[in-house]
Design a binder for these strands. Structure first.
Lengths: 197, 197
DNA sequence: CGACATTCTTACTCTAGAGTAAGATCAACC
DNA sequence: GGTTGATCTTACTCTAGAGTAAGAATGTCG
């Protein structure tokens, strides 16, 4: 009402609201964020949030859904089957870390917030499990001697866990994407103490 | 009032309260846990919680402090300097995973809850950083050719991240401590695809 | 223009749950 | 037995913040 903000079609406002919500949620966490704060950040009034999203939980769910979508898209190149498995793994790493680097708020909302709230954890674990399964497949199909008793599933869990930890450092600006990808790639193939590529 | 519960000295009651608090916090999370719920679980009345701990946040802080203490103690054997670095790493892994296996609620409170709440994250990150630094030292001192440009710090971050992810599976009963330790030890030295010990 | 739908706001209601006031009950010691 | 100081409870207060009622402003299409 104050100055420039005009009336906008629903679809546009919805995205504005999500932008604001992701921003505030990522900064303060789900519980310490009030709907008033989101409304203020989006520069609209609170009832609009309820009109378009129904409740705080649904709004947060919508955040997860959109950011999760974008996250999965960033992993798209890794499923290009014309690449070798190893190249695919590299593509997945770069896609993953690049996403985190370019979307720190999304990363915060998706992982550091959602995983903590048992009400949303299942929703995130879905995308996460997809990543783990993809990793497991890539590890398996790029290993020559299957070594009986090798559980690629748990290996993928470990590698993704390592990836998430490193991603936090990427998000913190302490290390660049390429360096981080190198590290993780080496980790997968040779172990931490192994020679550099 | 009801039946058996007698009057108890403060020190004892405090531990009972912490036991109950850790239990409920780990199950429902910080925000979805009410002081009434904790009081009920501890079988005392709410004002006792406030009398002994002051506030909900301080109570949670006390939980973190006690469990974090226990966690660090579980890592004690890893600092035995009569062992080789590699044996120390193994001891750290077993200590860490064993702790998680035997104290699932503690693990939940310490990691899955605290790390999500930015109000407590710093407190936990202290213990966590100690673990990372310990790991970094162990990796460094057990590597022959330092390979210029090798950043043991970030390697330790990756390895600890992998450890946490695997620890979740241990807590979930999907894998046993020994198997998990083997996996992580191998990961550190040979990479996921490497031969088994 | 006038009717209808959509966008949007001010100004509330209502409840969960953090925190407290006031004092009862018990144990121990003189 | 009475005094002192813990332990412990019932029964509140008070507020942040989720969610809503009622309707004003703006567009658009006949």
């Amino acid at each position: 009402m104050a100055g420039g903000t005009k009336r906008l079609p629903r679809a546009v406002r919805e995205q504005q609201m999500l932008d604001a919500a992701v921003e505030v949620f990522s900064a303060k966490g789900f519980h310490d964020t009030s709907m008033d704060a989101i409304a203020a950040a989006a520069e609209i009034s609170k009832p609009m949030l309820y009109l378009y999203y129904g409740s705080k939980e649904e709004l947060f769910t919508a955040c997860i859904a959109r950011e999760g979508q974008r996250f999965v898209e960033a992993l798209g190149p890794a499923t290009d089957s014309t690449l070798t498995p190893r190249e695919q793994l590299r593509a997945a790493l770069v896609g993953f870390l690049g996403f985190v680097d370019g979307h720190r708020s999304s990363w915060m909302v998706l992982y550091r917030q959602s995983m903590g709230e048992q009400a949303f954890a299942s929703q995130v674990r879905t995308s996460r499990d997809r990543l783990i399964e993809l990793t497991a497949k890539l590890l398996e199909s790029s290993t020559r001697e299957p070594e009986p008793g090798t559980d690629f599933g748990i290996m993928a869990v470990a590698l993704v866990g390592a990836g998430e930890a490193v991603a936090d450092r990427v998000a913190g600006g302490e290390i660049e994407v390429e360096k981080a990808a190198d590290l993780l790639e080496n980790l997968a193939w040779r172990g931490l103490a192994g020679k550099k590529k």
